[in-house]
Write a protein that binds this DNA or RNA. Sequence first.
DNA 1: CTTGACCTTCCAGTGACCGGAAGCTTCATA
DNA 2: TATGAAGCTTCCGGTCACTGGAAGGTCAAG
Lengths: 129, 129
Amino acid sequence: MNIGLASERSNLPPKTIRYYEEILLVNPGRAQNGYRDYSDSDIHRLRFLQRSRSLGFSIEECRTLLSLYEDENRASADVKALALEKVTEIDRKIKELKGLRNTLHALAENCHGDDKPDCPIIDDLAGKL
Amino acid sequence: MNIGLASERSNLPPKTIRYYEEILLVNPGRAQNGYRDYSDSDIHRLRFLQRSRSLGFSIEECRTLLSLYEDENRASADVKALALEKVTEIDRKIKELKGLRNTLHALAENCHGDDKPDCPIIDDLAGKL
DNA sequence: CTTGACCTTCCAGTGACCGGAAGCTTCATA
DNA sequence: TATGAAGCTTCCGGTCACTGGAAGGTCAAG
């Protein structure tokens, strides 16, 4: 099937699919007219990639996951470790964002928000007490 | 003062400071030997940038904040709006990350994590029920 | 006088794509 | 059968906010 259909089936834009080919994540055949020709198993790979990317795995992590996916003798512990590591990483990001959020919110709370120039937000950014 | 000291004072790496100059966020003088020469007010700008970047504002937003900072007649409402918009944006990111986190965590919970190949995480990524 | 730290510029790379140009092919319609 | 649109190809460049590294100039200490 052509890239357009593969795009629909995998829920990935064509540009992304071509990019994944460039970095050797997929390797579709070619039709006689030079068009890429995706098999069902290519679509599987693409969907796998779409799903794992959407879960926050980096491309390199996806590569690892794919190789585990294809390894009949994988230990599920390896996959679990990767997933839990990612959970920890996400937790860290959430914590950081919450800190930012609260700081910014507190700053905004203290700001009159009128047409006058006095602004605790700016004062804070400028390092004033 | 030289870039090394400016770096210490602003808590920004020298590379970043040069980059900020390239994109016209700072404009230090030059000493006779060609070295950049930072004034106290340059340091203020750098610290302002460091602080606003660390609060999650993009470079372009920092540019806006800087211009508000320097506008004696600014309306604090403008700054507040920017800050609150950022809060909303951060809230969105947090929500998204929490979703990811929970999905991944649930997946990992269901995984034995042993040396056998059966793995619900992989199954999920592969789209299996 | 040399060593080493610091400074300069310039070029290239990161991650994960996206936009657009120039030029094929294929398909539906007039 | 012509034509025009849609879809495909490759290639190049841009994004964001830096970061690394090479090649070379400058400065203070020993």
